[in-house]
Amino acid sequence: QPKKFCDYCKCWIADNRPSVEFHERGKNHKENVAKR
């Protein structure tokens, strides 16, 4: 299972659409993006 690194959250997520979309909709991710 390939992994994708989220540069905002400094974490690895599964590299498939549902996982990536779920991660990017998450509160934690949105806060990290807003902080940039």
Score class of each variant (00 low, 15 high):
residue 13 I to L: 07
residue 33 V to S: 09
residue 12 W to F: 08
residue 19 S to T: 11
residue 25 R to Q: 13
residue 8 Y to A: 11
residue 8 Y to P: 15
residue 31 E to R: 10
residue 8 Y to T: 11
residue 23 H to N: 00
residue 11 C to H: 05
residue 30 K to L: 11
residue 33 V to W: 06
residue 17 R to Y: 07
residue 8 Y to D: 14
residue 8 Y to S: 03
residue 10 K to S: 09
residue 16 N to R: 09
residue 3 K to R: 13
residue 14 A to M: 01
residue 33 V to I: 04
residue 28 N to K: 15
residue 21 E to P: 03
residue 24 E to L: 01
residue 36 R to E: 15
residue 12 W to R: 02
residue 30 K to V: 12
residue 2 P to D: 15
residue 5 F to S: 03
residue 13 I to Q: 02
residue 10 K to L: 11
residue 2 P to M: 15
residue 27 K to H: 14
residue 1 Q to M: 07
residue 30 K to C: 13
residue 3 K to P: 09
residue 31 E to D: 10
residue 28 N to C: 10
residue 23 H to F: 01
residue 11 C to S: 14
residue 28 N to E: 12
residue 4 K to I: 07
residue 6 C to G: 00
residue 8 Y to K: 05
residue 13 I to H: 04
residue 26 G to D: 13
residue 17 R to A: 13
residue 32 N to A: 13
residue 13 I to N: 05
residue 10 K to P: 03
residue 33 V to D: 07
residue 16 N to T: 15
residue 21 E to Y: 00
residue 9 C to K: 00
residue 2 P to C: 00
residue 28 N to P: 11
residue 36 R to P: 15
residue 15 D to V: 05
residue 30 K to S: 10
residue 7 D to R: 05
residue 16 N to L: 08
residue 21 E to S: 08
residue 30 K to A: 10
residue 1 Q to Y: 04
residue 2 P to S: 14
residue 9 C to M: 00
residue 28 N to T: 10
residue 12 W to C: 04
residue 36 R to W: 06
residue 18 P to C: 10
residue 2 P to E: 14
residue 6 C to I: 03
residue 32 N to Q: 13
residue 29 H to M: 03
residue 34 A to E: 12
residue 31 E to C: 05
residue 4 K to Q: 07
residue 21 E to L: 08
residue 31 E to H: 06
residue 35 K to E: 10
residue 7 D to W: 01
residue 7 D to K: 06
residue 11 C to P: 03
residue 9 C to H: 00
residue 32 N to I: 03
residue 21 E to Q: 11
residue 3 K to E: 15
residue 23 H to Q: 02
residue 22 F to G: 14
residue 8 Y to W: 09
residue 34 A to V: 10
residue 24 E to Y: 08
residue 27 K to Y: 01
residue 1 Q to W: 00
residue 24 E to Q: 03
residue 26 G to I: 00
residue 7 D to Y: 06
residue 29 H to D: 00
residue 30 K to M: 08
residue 18 P to F: 04
residue 25 R to F: 08
residue 23 H to T: 01
residue 4 K to R: 04
residue 6 C to H: 02
residue 1 Q to S: 01
residue 8 Y to L: 06
residue 31 E to W: 00
residue 25 R to D: 14
residue 10 K to F: 04
residue 1 Q to E: 00
residue 33 V to G: 07
residue 15 D to Q: 06
residue 25 R to V: 12
residue 35 K to V: 09
residue 7 D to G: 08
residue 18 P to K: 08
residue 15 D to P: 08
residue 34 A to G: 12
residue 19 S to A: 11
residue 24 E to C: 03
residue 2 P to T: 14
residue 24 E to P: 00
residue 15 D to T: 11
residue 17 R to L: 12
residue 13 I to W: 02
residue 17 R to Q: 12
residue 13 I to G: 03
residue 26 G to S: 13
residue 14 A to C: 08
residue 5 F to M: 11
residue 13 I to E: 07
residue 33 V to T: 07
residue 29 H to C: 03
residue 33 V to E: 13
residue 32 N to P: 03
residue 15 D to A: 09
residue 23 H to G: 01
residue 3 K to T: 06
residue 23 H to S: 02
residue 6 C to M: 01
residue 36 R to C: 13
residue 14 A to K: 06
residue 31 E to V: 10
residue 27 K to D: 08
residue 17 R to N: 12
residue 5 F to T: 02
residue 20 V to D: 02
residue 34 A to W: 07
residue 7 D to T: 15
residue 3 K to G: 11
residue 5 F to C: 02
residue 30 K to D: 06
residue 17 R to H: 09
residue 19 S to V: 03
residue 19 S to E: 06
residue 22 F to H: 09
residue 13 I to P: 03
residue 1 Q to H: 06
residue 6 C to E: 02
residue 7 D to L: 07
residue 4 K to D: 02
residue 10 K to D: 14
residue 32 N to F: 04
residue 24 E to V: 01
residue 11 C to V: 14
residue 32 N to Y: 06
residue 17 R to M: 15
residue 10 K to I: 04
residue 35 K to C: 00
residue 1 Q to V: 06
residue 10 K to Y: 12
residue 20 V to C: 02
residue 29 H to F: 00
residue 10 K to M: 05
residue 29 H to R: 01
residue 33 V to L: 07
residue 25 R to C: 09
residue 9 C to Q: 01
residue 7 D to M: 07
residue 20 V to P: 03
residue 12 W to H: 15
residue 18 P to S: 08
residue 9 C to A: 01
residue 13 I to Y: 15
residue 27 K to P: 07
residue 3 K to L: 08
residue 28 N to M: 15
residue 23 H to D: 04
residue 21 E to V: 06
residue 26 G to K: 06
residue 1 Q to I: 15
residue 36 R to L: 15
residue 8 Y to C: 06
residue 2 P to A: 13
residue 16 N to P: 13
residue 17 R to S: 13
residue 30 K to Y: 04
residue 11 C to M: 14
residue 9 C to D: 02
residue 26 G to R: 07
residue 9 C to S: 10
residue 25 R to W: 05
residue 20 V to L: 05
residue 6 C to W: 00
residue 30 K to W: 05
residue 34 A to C: 09
residue 36 R to T: 11
residue 4 K to G: 03
residue 26 G to V: 08
residue 32 N to V: 05
residue 9 C to E: 01
residue 15 D to F: 07
residue 5 F to K: 03
residue 12 W to Q: 14
residue 11 C to F: 04
residue 30 K to T: 15
residue 25 R to I: 06
residue 22 F to D: 14
residue 25 R to S: 11
residue 18 P to Y: 08
residue 7 D to E: 13
residue 35 K to P: 12
residue 16 N to I: 15
residue 13 I to S: 03
residue 14 A to I: 11
residue 32 N to L: 08
residue 34 A to H: 12
residue 14 A to Q: 06
residue 14 A to T: 11
residue 18 P to Q: 09
residue 20 V to W: 08
residue 18 P to V: 08
residue 17 R to G: 12
residue 15 D to S: 07
residue 15 D to L: 05
residue 19 S to C: 03
residue 20 V to Q: 06
residue 32 N to C: 09
residue 11 C to T: 14
residue 27 K to V: 09
residue 12 W to A: 07
residue 24 E to M: 03
residue 21 E to C: 04
residue 16 N to A: 14
residue 33 V to A: 12
residue 27 K to S: 09
residue 30 K to F: 05
residue 12 W to K: 02
residue 15 D to W: 04
residue 14 A to P: 08
residue 17 R to W: 04
residue 11 C to K: 11
residue 28 N to Y: 10
residue 28 N to G: 14
residue 17 R to E: 12
residue 7 D to Q: 10
residue 23 H to W: 01
residue 34 A to K: 10
residue 33 V to F: 08
residue 24 E to D: 04
residue 36 R to V: 12
residue 26 G to T: 09
residue 16 N to K: 14
residue 20 V to H: 12
residue 6 C to A: 03
residue 20 V to M: 12
residue 25 R to Y: 04
residue 21 E to R: 11
residue 26 G to M: 14
residue 7 D to S: 09
residue 2 P to I: 13
residue 10 K to H: 12
residue 4 K to M: 14
residue 31 E to M: 11
residue 31 E to N: 05
residue 3 K to H: 02
residue 20 V to N: 12
residue 8 Y to I: 09
residue 11 C to L: 11
residue 11 C to Q: 15
residue 15 D to M: 09
residue 11 C to R: 11
residue 34 A to I: 14
residue 15 D to N: 06
residue 9 C to L: 00
residue 32 N to K: 10
residue 27 K to T: 08
residue 26 G to L: 06
residue 34 A to S: 14
residue 11 C to D: 15
residue 35 K to M: 10
residue 3 K to V: 06
residue 35 K to A: 15
residue 4 K to C: 03
residue 31 E to S: 05
residue 17 R to P: 15
residue 14 A to R: 04
residue 27 K to C: 05
residue 31 E to L: 07
residue 18 P to R: 09
residue 14 A to L: 02
residue 10 K to G: 09
residue 11 C to W: 02
residue 4 K to F: 08
residue 23 H to A: 01
residue 32 N to W: 10
residue 23 H to V: 00
residue 5 F to G: 01
residue 23 H to R: 01
residue 5 F to W: 00
residue 24 E to K: 08
